[in-house]
């Protein structure tokens, strides 16, 4: 997943540079850069075509979006078992913690599926207005049409968290972990410790 994200980020960069070139009217030219952690393969070199399935899909979706005129828009939905926070609301940016690393979602993000990690989601609604929501777990879907859905099992504004209750939960989970005998009990306690650590960090 991590390498997929890396390659998709690179593909996104490709799309951006291709768009810029097209705008300048250099339709037959492409400044191509291909770099990895270990080597730089191309630096702004003019090439005929670059093909990768991901890039092709991106170009298609970017074109489709541009045609529809949704370029700067993101339909954001965030719901949990206890509350619906956003329904198809246009927001600027969403930062999410996932098992494949924390990442930010802007309009026109690469279509993505990810699993939520317990932690804080930051939603940038408009310039200067943001909301922080703690999520336990769930899924993130970024679609082709720039809509984003986050479904969480339990979600609460960070303001609703109690710092001292979070510390209590953490110490209880830690003592459960040290006294756990079976492999399953140990894993269950370890999960609780992890979540509690995230809670303490978010609440303080």
């Amino acid at each position: 997943m991590a390498s997929l994200m890396k390659s998709s980020r690179m593909a996104a960069r490709l799309v951006t540079s291709a768009t810029r070139v097209a705008r300048r009217g250099y339709a037959d030219q492409m400044d191509f850069t291909l770099a990895s952690g270990n080597k730089v393969f191309y630096t702004n070199q003019n090439v005929k075509q670059v093909s990768s399935r991901m890039a092709a899909r991106l170009v298609t979706s970017a074109t489709r979006l541009a045609r529809r005129g949704y370029a700067d828009q993101m339909d954001f939905t965030l719901a949990s078992g206890n509350k619906v926070f956003y329904t198809n609301q246009n927001v600027k940016q969403v930062d999410v913690p996932s098992f494949s690393g924390a990442f930010g979602i802007l309009p026109n993000h690469v279509p993505t599926l990810a699993i939520l990690k317990p932690g804080v989601i930051t939603v940038y609604e408009t310039e200067g207005v943001s909301q922080k929501i703690f999520v336990s777990s769930g899924t993130i879907t970024v679609n082709d049409d720039s809509s984003v859905q986050i479904i969480a099992e339990e979600a609460h504004p960070v303001d609703s968290l109690d710092a001292s209750a979070a510390r209590d939960v953490l110490s209880k989970a830690q003592s459960e972990l040290s006294s756990a005998s079976s492999e399953t009990a140990k894993a269950e306690a370890q999960i609780a410790v992890e979540v509690a650590e995230a809670l303490v960090a978010a609440a303080s």
Partner: peptide, 13 residues
């Protein structure tokens, strides 16, 4: 997810 949700509920005001 169940454990994570339960842990979160315990830490609410």
């Amino acid at each position: 997810s169940n454990i994570a949700a339960r842990t979160l509920r315990r830490a609410l005001k």
